[in-house]
Lab assay of single mutants.
Amino acid sequence: MGFKLLSKLLVYLTASIMAIASPLAFSVDSSGEYPTVSEIPVGEVRLYQIADGVWSHIATQSFDGAVYPSNGLIVRDGDELLLIDTAWGAKNTAALLAEIEKQIGLPVTRAVSTHFHDDRVGGVDVLRAAGVATYASPSTRRLAEVEGNEIPTHSLEGLSSSGDAVRFGPVELFYPGAAHSTDNLIVYVPSASVLYGGCAIYELSRTSAGNVADADLAEWPTSIERIQQHYPEAQFVIPGHGLPGGLDLLKHTTNVVKAHTNRSVVE
């Protein structure tokens, strides 16, 4: 069995187990497998329904001669939608809004960016022009300005110390501490036991640490421990890039980060 097929099978099995364990909360999309990078042309966006009122959005972007996937989250909030992270750029984010209108038909009224990198804030200006209120932590807003990236308009308070959590509509926002970046936030959907790890969490097929220019490698494993301790009931975990899975993604990420750190020390 090929690795790609095995990865998709694991996603399907995880979703099936969740649907059985929580039949009222989960209505997993039966329309197909989780979209992969090879299936999404740059400039297009796919939506994948995880649970009743919960979707991931998947886009792709060219970077350094390669094409990478990027995940975000959409959560229903009454007759409105909360968006977590842009679709990595203005063109993708405009396509995301169009796809949401086509498939869901509810307005996106608020959006949260989970850290300051372009795959999370690139497209904020498109959201703002569409009347979406954009939010991020003060740290993310400051770092985005320093980096020359787009800056969300509103500040999220109460997320300055490791372990801080605040309720934001249908989700809980959690600051686990520094990891992929010093400002990275985690998003949890309690009604569906869905954990969105953003770039602080890796997919299972990833074996290298990737972009760690703004990471705190020493603190990252401790931050992941905080996530595990705060959300032990999480059933569906979405990484910032690639295929979702279960809580095993947290341990896998820790292993990859520690291996990278150990290699760096040896070198």
Score class of each variant (00 low, 15 high):
Glu99Ile: 14
Ala165Lys: 15
Lys91Tyr: 11
Leu13Asn: 15
Ala130Ile: 14
Val266His: 08
Phe3Ser: 05
Pro190Val: 12
Tyr68His: 04
Ala25Ser: 06
His154Ile: 09
Trp88Tyr: 00
Gly89Trp: 02
Lys8Pro: 00
Ala234Pro: 04
Glu99Thr: 14
Ala66Thr: 07
Asp52Gln: 07
Asn149Thr: 05
Leu82Phe: 10
Val37Phe: 08
Ser22Trp: 14
His154Asn: 06
Val126Glu: 09
Val28Thr: 08
Asp64Phe: 12
Val212Leu: 13
Glu33Gly: 09
Gln49Lys: 06
Ser70Tyr: 03
Gly78Asn: 14
Ile17Pro: 03
Gly169Cys: 03
Ala136His: 03
Leu185Lys: 01
Tyr68Trp: 04
Leu217Ile: 15
Ser16Glu: 09
Leu83Thr: 15
Gly163Pro: 11
Asp77Gln: 09
Ile104Cys: 00
Phe174Arg: 06
Ser7Glu: 12
Thr14Lys: 13
Lys8Met: 09
Leu247Ser: 05
Ser137Lys: 06
Ala234Ser: 13
Asp164Val: 13
Thr261Ser: 06
Gln103Leu: 13
Ile20Phe: 14
Ile84Glu: 01
Gln228Lys: 06
Ser16Asp: 06
Gly177Gln: 02
Gly245Asp: 08
Ala87Glu: 01
Val146Gln: 11
Phe3Tyr: 07
Ala129Phe: 04
Ala209Tyr: 12
Ser193Asp: 13
Glu233Gln: 13
Ala213Gln: 13
Ile84Cys: 01
Ile238Trp: 14
Trp220Cys: 03
Ala130Tyr: 09
Val124Thr: 05
Tyr231Glu: 01
Leu243Phe: 11
Arg110Tyr: 10
Arg110His: 04
Ser264Ala: 08
Ala234Trp: 02
Ala200Gly: 11
Ile50Leu: 08
Val194Cys: 00
Thr36Ile: 05
Tyr202Leu: 13
Ser56Met: 14
Arg128Thr: 08
Ala95Ile: 09
Glu33Pro: 04
Val108Lys: 02
Arg128Lys: 08
Leu10Thr: 10
Asp216Asn: 13
Phe174Ala: 10
Gly242Gln: 01
Pro138Cys: 11
Ile186Gly: 02
Ile74Thr: 08
Ser7Pro: 15
Leu6Ala: 09
Asp79Leu: 14
Glu145Lys: 08
Glu219Val: 09
Asp79Tyr: 15
Leu156Asn: 03
Ala94Met: 13
Asp85Val: 00
Ser191Met: 07
Thr114Lys: 00
Asp214Arg: 12
Glu145Asp: 10
Leu249Arg: 00
Lys251Trp: 10
Ser16Val: 14
Asp125Gly: 10
His260Asn: 07
Asp77Gly: 07
Ser30Ile: 14
Leu83Met: 10
Pro23Gly: 08
Leu9Glu: 07
Gln61Gly: 06
Pro23Leu: 05
Ile104Pro: 00
Thr153Glu: 11
Gln229Met: 14
His117Gln: 01
Gly242Glu: 02
Thr109Ile: 11
Ala218Phe: 10
Val132Ile: 05
Ala209Met: 14
Gln61Pro: 13
Trp220Asn: 00
Phe168Trp: 14
Asn255Pro: 03
Phe168His: 06
Gly122Tyr: 14
Leu10Cys: 09
Ala234Gly: 11
Gly240Tyr: 00
Ser223Met: 03
Gly158Cys: 04
Gly72Ala: 01
Leu127Pro: 02
Ser137Gly: 11
Asn149Pro: 08
Thr182Tyr: 04
Gly78Lys: 12
Arg128Leu: 04
Ser264Pro: 13
His180Thr: 00
Pro239Leu: 02
Leu47Arg: 01
Gly197Cys: 14
Val187Trp: 01
Asp118Tyr: 15
Ala209Ile: 05
Asn255Lys: 08
Ser30Glu: 11
Leu10Gly: 08
Thr14Trp: 04
Ile74Leu: 07
Gly245Phe: 01
Gly148Ser: 11
Ala25Arg: 06
Tyr34Pro: 07
Val54Phe: 03
Ser264Tyr: 09
Trp88Ser: 00
Thr36Lys: 12
Val166Leu: 12
Ala218Met: 10
Gly89Asp: 09
Leu96Lys: 01
Arg206Asn: 11
Thr153Asn: 07
Glu150Tyr: 04
Leu159Gln: 01
Gly197Arg: 01
Ala144Phe: 02
Ile201Met: 12
Leu96Ile: 14
Pro239Met: 02
Glu44Asp: 07
Lys4Gly: 03
Val28Lys: 09
Gln235Asn: 05
Gln49Tyr: 08
Ala59Tyr: 03
Thr140Ile: 03
Glu145Asn: 11
Pro239His: 00
Ile17His: 04
Thr140Lys: 03
Ala209Ser: 13
Ser181Asp: 01
Leu195Tyr: 01
Asp118Ile: 11
Thr207Asp: 14
Leu83Gly: 01
Arg46Asn: 04
Ile20Ser: 09
Arg167Ala: 05
Asn211His: 05
Ile227Trp: 02
Gln61His: 07
Thr93Gly: 00
Asn184Trp: 01
Gly72Met: 00
Thr140Gly: 02
Thr93Phe: 01
Cys199Ser: 01
Gly210Leu: 11
Glu233Asn: 13
Thr254Glu: 14
Val266Pro: 08
Tyr68Cys: 06
Leu247Asn: 05
Glu157Asp: 13
Asn262Cys: 14
Val45Asn: 06
Ala130Asp: 12
Val45Met: 12
His230Ala: 09
Tyr202Gly: 10
Glu233Trp: 09
Ala133Asn: 04
Val42Gln: 08
Gly245Glu: 05
Ala111Pro: 03
Thr86Phe: 00
Thr182Met: 15
Ala66Met: 07
Leu6Ser: 12
Val121Ser: 04
Tyr202Trp: 11
Ser155Gly: 08
Asn184Glu: 01
Met1Lys: 03
Phe26Cys: 09
Ala218Pro: 09
Asn71Lys: 02
Asp79Arg: 13
Val121Thr: 11
Gly169Glu: 09
Thr153Trp: 13
Met1Thr: 03
Val189Thr: 07
Tyr68Thr: 09
Thr153Gln: 12
Thr134Glu: 03
His252Lys: 12
Ala165Arg: 13
Asp29Pro: 10
Leu185Trp: 01
Lys102Ile: 08
Val132Arg: 01
Ile238Gln: 06
Ala215Asp: 13
Ser193Thr: 05
Ile201Lys: 00
Arg263Val: 06
Arg167Gln: 05
Gly131Glu: 12
His180Pro: 01
His241Cys: 00
Ala218Asp: 10
Tyr175Trp: 13
Leu47His: 02
Thr114Cys: 00
Asp64Thr: 09
Arg110Asp: 15
His117Gly: 00
Gln61Lys: 05
Pro152Leu: 04
Gly89His: 04
Arg128Cys: 04
Pro190Tyr: 15
Ala51Gln: 08
Gly43Glu: 10
Leu195Lys: 01
Trp55Gln: 01
Gly123Ala: 02
Gly2Ile: 14
Gly240Phe: 00
Val266Ile: 04
Val11Cys: 06
Asn92Trp: 04
Ser22Val: 10
Leu217Gly: 12
Val256Thr: 10
Asn211Ser: 10
Lys258Gln: 07
Gly43Ile: 10
Phe116Cys: 03
Val28Arg: 09
Leu247Gly: 11
Lys258Cys: 10
Arg141Ala: 13
Tyr202Val: 08
Arg167Asp: 04
Ser155Val: 11
Leu13Phe: 13
Gly89Phe: 03
Ala215Glu: 12
Glu172Pro: 02
Pro152Met: 04
Ser264Thr: 10
Thr222Leu: 09
Gln228Cys: 15
Ala213Lys: 12
Ile40Leu: 10
Phe116Asp: 03
Pro35Asp: 12
Leu247Arg: 09
Ile20Glu: 05
Ser22Thr: 10
Val121Lys: 00
Ser137Ile: 12
Asp216Glu: 12
His115Phe: 00
Asp64Tyr: 06
Asp52Asn: 08
Thr153Asp: 05
Asp119Ala: 03
Pro138Asn: 05
Pro190Met: 04
Leu173Thr: 03
Ser22Phe: 04
Ala98His: 14
Thr207Tyr: 06
Ala259Ser: 06
Ser139Gly: 09
Ala90Leu: 10
Arg110Leu: 14
Ile58Arg: 06
Pro244Cys: 03
Phe63Lys: 05
Arg76Ala: 09
Ala66Phe: 09
Thr261Gly: 12
Val54Lys: 03
Ala25Leu: 09
Leu9Gln: 08
Leu6Lys: 05
Asn262His: 05
Leu81Ser: 04
Asn71Gln: 08
Phe168Tyr: 13
Arg76Thr: 12
Pro23Ile: 08
Thr14Glu: 10
Ile151Pro: 09
Arg141Cys: 13
Ala179Met: 15
Val187Ala: 08
Asp85Gly: 00
Arg120Leu: 01
Thr182His: 06
Tyr231Ala: 05
Asn211Thr: 12
Leu249Cys: 01
Ser155Cys: 15
Glu101Pro: 15
Leu143Ile: 11
Ser181Gly: 01
Glu157Phe: 12
Val75Trp: 01
Ala165Val: 12
Leu24Phe: 07
His230Pro: 03
Ser181Thr: 09
Ile238His: 01
Leu6Glu: 06
Leu83Ala: 15
Ala19Pro: 13
Thr86His: 00
Gly163Arg: 13
Asp118Pro: 08
Ala98Trp: 13
Asn255Met: 07
His180Tyr: 03
Ala200Leu: 11
Leu195Asn: 00
Val146Trp: 12
Arg120Ile: 01
Gly32Arg: 10
Gly148Gln: 07
Val121Gln: 00
